[in-house]
Amino acid sequence: MIQAINVSKIFESKKILDDISLEVRNEFIGVVGSTGIGKSILLKIIAGLIKPSSGKVMIDQGQTTGFVFQHSALFDSMSVEQNIRLPLEESSSFSKKEIDAKVKEISELLYIPKQMLKQNCNDLSGGERKIVAIARAVIYDPTYLLYDEPTTGLDSVMHNKICQIVKGLNKPGILVTHNKDTVKAVGIKIVYVLDAGKLNLTKELYE
């Protein structure tokens, strides 16, 4: 279980997040809100990438998170395959054979063609980069997936493809976005709205 307890974040004396509490057990939840409202900051605090000004985040022992960054954050000096392999290669518990098999499995699951694996990340389109970022996040089979604006800047075809992939992965976690259509397309049922630093459960998306 992920538990955010009374999390607040202050940036340059401005309160971005105000006493937010959130719990994720086995569900996939959405957080929507306008641009610049603090959604990414909330997600990064949950992932442990940013420290909260107050409050704490707890993740059950043995559980892990995978993070899909808004701008993909791929390692641009590496090929697609090297990006996907990296999390497993840096872990001491996988042999080369196991990593090869896992890369093959994930590539097929996410419709990554073989020839793309050899390409440098800089040569990919925005949508392809997102898919590789998802592959890198899921390859070590984290308990929860955290998506930061996974469909921003994509055309409708790629938007639908990414949503289909996210839905197909069927992993619990959190998806933050400003685009309510994304939340609907990936089939999220529990949606929160982040506004003025507060997080409120909403039902209006499906009404």
């Binding site: 990064k44 990438l49 995978g66 960054f69 954050a73 791929l74 641009d76 990296l86 999390p87």
Partner: peptide, 16 residues
């Protein structure tokens, strides 16, 4: 450059 393009955060996110 890795820092401003979130690649360092990406390393942390994959437990490196």
């Amino acid at each position: 450059t890795m820092k401003v393009t979130e690649q360092i955060d990406a390393l942390k996110s994959i437990k490196i």
